[in-house]
Design a protein around this nucleic acid. Structure first.
Lengths: 258, 258
DNA sequence: CACTCGTACTCCTCTAGACGACTCGACCTT
DNA sequence: AAGGTCGAGTCGTCTAGAGGAGTACGAGTG
C-alpha cells in the first residue's frame, strides 16, 4: 500500500497530510471496506512522527466516519455511507408491534440484516422525570430496558423504555426483544388494554456520547422519537425514548383527514 | 463558575468528566452564548491535569458544536439553538387543516406571532418526478405553491406544494394561505373527497441555499416532511415538501394501537 | 478434545514538556 | 493623533514517553 511521506514544504501540518494519505488510500481502493488500517506503531515507524500525531490523523478519519477504531483489534475502514434508507416505519391504522418485532420486519423489508445488542433490563425506582411521564406515585418502580439496534452490523438506533413494574409484572418483557409479538401482544392478557400511542418527533445534533454509541460521522443529525403508549383510560403504559441515525430513517405516518 | 473536580472513583475517564462539567455549566447558564470558556491554562490549573487532557475535553464540545475555538482569542460558547419550540403539530384523529391555518393555530398556541412571506403561486407542466408522485398523465399541469413561514419574524419553515390543475381549478388556492379553512375545506365541494394524508419524516443537514432561506447557523439540521393527501379512491390530491428548522419543531402524532 | 493461561498486539488515556501562530492591548515612536 | 512594536495570553501542533485495557491466538494443562 502506498502512503507517501511527510512533505516539509507543504504548509499543511503533518497530521493532516497523514490523514490525506490514508483517505486517498481508501478512495483508491487500496483499503477496502472492512480492511484494517496500518496500526499506530506501523504509521509511527513509516512517517517518523510521534504517537499523538498519528492518532490525530486517524481521529480525522474517525470524525469523518470513514474508519472505526476497535479497542484491542485495530482500526477498520467503514462501509461506505449508507445510501439505502433503513426503515420506513409505517404506523397508524396498522397493528403496532414493538421493539425488535417492528424493527426486524422493516429492516428485512428493505434488505438489511437486523440485530440487537447491548440489551439491558433493570428494575428500580423511577426518576422524578419518569415518574411524571408515567404518572406514577412516589416509590413506584419501573422496568428500564435499553437496547441498540443494528442493521447489517451497523448501529442505527438506540432506545430506552420505561414500564411501570406493575404493568411489567409477569409480562416477560425480554421476549419482546428476542422474538415477534412481545409485550404489546401480552398487555391485554394482563388487564391493560392498549389504546394508542403518541409519538413526538424532532431532530438535533447528537452529543459526543450519542455519536459514539451510534458510530456517527461528524455532522450527522439524529432523529429523536419519544413514544408513549396509553391504555383505554388514558393512563400511560410505557414511555420509550429513541435515538435514530437520521440518514438511515424515514418515518411514515398515516393521518386521517378528520 | 462551578466546575467541580475529577472523581477518581468515577469510571469515566477524566477528559470525559471535564467535558461533562463544561457541558453542565453551559446548560445551567453559567456560561451563556458568546461567553469565553476558561482558558486551557486555567482548566489545567483547576483540574490538575495535563494540557492534552483538557484539550480532549474541549474537543468533545467542539465536535458537538456547542463551542467554537478561535486561534489566539479563546474558546466561546456558541449561539444556542432556539430553545422555545415553535409548533407542536398534532395530527391524527383531528381535523387536519392545511397551510397557514394549521401553522398559525400552532404558532399562536405556543406564543409566537405567525406570518407568511415569499408566497409564490404558479401553474405549469409537471416535472416527471411530480407527475409520478401525483400519478398524472403526460402534459397535465400542476399548480405550484411555495411559501415561507415565519415565527416572530424569524423563518422557521419553507414549503412547496403541488396540486393537479384539475383539482385546483376553481378552488381559489391562494386563500388557503391567507385565511383559515382553505383548500381542504373546499375539496369536497369540488367532488374530491379528502380521505387521509401520509407524512414521511426525516432529518438531514441543509444545503447552503436552504440554510440561507431559513437563516440557519452552521450545524443546525432540518426536518424534512413530505406530505401527500389522498382522496377516498386512493388517488393523490396534493403533495407538499416541507423543510423545517429542526430546533423549532416537535412533530406530534397519535397512532391507534390497531 | 476442551479449557485455561500467557503473551503479543492493538487502541485508549494521560503526563510533561516544547515551539509556533494568532489576537489584542499597552506602549513607544513619529 | 497616527502608526508601529512588543509582550501577554490564547489555541494549534508536536515530541517522547508511560501504564491500562481489550482482543487474538498459540502453548500448555486437564
Amino acid at each position: 500500500m502506498q502512503l507517501g511521506a511527510i512533505d516539509r514544504a507543504d504548509d499543511r501540518p503533518p497530521y493532516r497530510q497523514i490523514a490525506d494519505h490514508l483517505r486517498a488510500a481508501i478512495d483508491r481502493g487500496d483499503l477496502a471496506a472492512g480492511d484494517k488500517l496500518p496500526s499506530e506503531a506501523v504509521l509511527i515507524e513509516h512517517y517518523g512522527v510521534a504517537r499523538m500525531t498519528v492518532r490525530q490523523a486517524v481521529q480525522e478519519l474517525r470524525n469523518e466516519g470513514r474508519v472505526v477504531a476497535e479497542h484491542g483489534r485495530g482500526t477498520f475502514v467503514r462501509q461506505p455511507v449508507q445510501v439505502r434508507r433503513l426503515a420506513s416505519e409505517r404506523f397508524a391504522r396498522r397493528h403496532r408491534e414493538a421493539g425488535l418485532a417492528a424493527f426486524s420486519v422493516e429492516a428485512q423489508k428493505t434488505g438489511f440484516t437486523p440485530n440487537v445488542d447491548q440489551l439491558e433490563v433493570s428494575t428500580g425506582p423511577a426518576t422524578p422525570e419518569i415518574r411524571d411521564r408515567l404518572r406514577l406515585g412516589d416509590g413506584e418502580e419501573v422496568v428500564v430496558r435499553s437496547r441498540r439496534y443494528l442493521a447489517d452490523g451497523q448501529p442505527v438506533e438506540t432506545a430506552v423504555s420505561y414500564l411501570p413494574a406493575s404493568v411489567a409484572a409477569g409480562s416477560r418483557i425480554v421476549e419482546a426483544d428476542t422474538g415477534p409479538g412481545g409485550i404489546y401482544a401480552r398487555l391485554e392478557d394482563m388487564g391493560f388494554e392498549l389504546d394508542h400511542f403518541t409519538e413526538e418527533v424532532s431532530a438535533r445534533m447528537p452529543s459526543a456520547e450519542e455519536r459514539r454509541r451510534l458510530q456517527l460521522t461528524d455532522g450527522v443529525p439524529v432523529v429523536v422519537l419519544v413514544r408513549t403508549a396509553y391504555d383505554t383510560t388514558g393512563r400511560p403504559l410505557e414511555v420509550c425514548d429513541t435515538l435514530k441515525a437520521a440518514p438511515a430513517y424515514v418515518l411514515e405516518y398515516e393521518v386521517p383527514a378528520r
